[in-house]
Design a protein around this nucleic acid. Sequence first.
DNA 1: CACAACATCTTTACGCTGGAAAGATTCCAT
DNA 2: ATGGAATCTTTCCAGCGTAAAGATGTTGTG
Lengths: 224, 224
Amino acid sequence: MSHRRPPAPRRTYHHGDLRNALLAAAETIVEREGIPALTLRALARAAGVSHAAPAHHFGDLVGLLSELAAVGYTRLTTRFAEAMAAVGPAPDRRLRAMGQAYVGFARAHPGLFQLMFRAERLDPARPALRAAMDAAGAALRNAIAARTGTPASALQAVAQAAALWSLVHGFSVLLIDGRLRGLLAALPEGEDAETLLEAVFAVTDVAAPAGPDREVFVAAAECA
Amino acid sequence: MSHRRPPAPRRTYHHGDLRNALLAAAETIVEREGIPALTLRALARAAGVSHAAPAHHFGDLVGLLSELAAVGYTRLTTRFAEAMAAVGPAPDRRLRAMGQAYVGFARAHPGLFQLMFRAERLDPARPALRAAMDAAGAALRNAIAARTGTPASALQAVAQAAALWSLVHGFSVLLIDGRLRGLLAALPEGEDAETLLEAVFAVTDVAAPAGPDREVFVAAAECA
DNA sequence: CACAACATCTTTACGCTGGAAAGATTCCAT
DNA sequence: ATGGAATCTTTCCAGCGTAAAGATGTTGTG
């Protein structure tokens, strides 16, 4: 089944598409045994090739991890698109759906997610990684801008973006690390991480219908 | 039974207080060269001892990293206490001060902060680490509970805690990783990460008594 | 003071890792 | 078909964590 596509950059020979096989094997290793277990040699063993074969395709370990992180970012981007398409055009719902997609991705692929933010083991200069990161970042920024509309100030616009990203990212990281176990245990019966996230959104009003009224109300409440 | 003198720790034998010397050297390595550079052998070289000496004090690498993370948590806890003591008894200000202390700690000790949340390289069963983590967590919970008062529901109470923690943690992680550089560059002249954090607090109304409008902010500040 | 038990550090050794270098195999263009 | 290039293997080296045994200074006990 070796069909040839003119612009196809992958020529199959011995193993046939070893590069993609390595990426797939790398992902299962990272999800099942964690990032430290993802070594060039372990990967080569899993793929049934010599330990030097991965280095040929990815240069070194940083190259492999960067390439794997890139597939993570593109997958996250498509997940963003799907989640937003599923809730219609309302900017509020779209932004909230994206936040849920962010956390959902982290829960579905914790190892990959952690790798995507392990800066010291990635090389952002790699074209694939940079492009994938830019795409994901652009999707996030667009959704935030669409919801914010015309902000009162540049500071507020930036703050809203930073707030939403910080919130969903922090929630994802803490949840994956099991740091929220205590809080989850304190939840009423039947509530899980997903409903907690919704409640977090409601409390922060970052991804909920907003207006200056609420802020004024809060300020007034503090006075009393 | 071992007496301990803070000013003159030269009480032990060969090297004298090698354990603390190792912890100090480990911190400088982690801050200057990152977590991957913190190896038992590099640490031994930095301390001028044989490469097996650290293993005797910490068991293995996980033990060393756990012990170092523990000093990070205790330092964070004292930073919490100092920051809250500096702003008086108002629960709002205290909570906000704690959030700022959280991010400030991450900025001051990025390597240590990252290590503290590198679950796969830590052993939470270590008494020192567990105790230090519990202390920091208790401080955080107390400050949140003091501000929340009597919440409308258990879900909301948990959500407020999760929201604040997620927000400051996510902000810290993204800031340290340089992921907020783009947003920081979009800030008005003279604004830095600190003012962005304040704006984030204002937007999320999790730890801020005021909205983004200066009038509202001033009004609320006068009330307090 | 003598001496044994102990804690601390060093030496040695083993298997694992990433990476470089060179050889072998297969594909592709000509 | 043939030369060149891409792909994979083999070999080798230094660094790593860790275990075990040896060396050295400290400390408790008579």
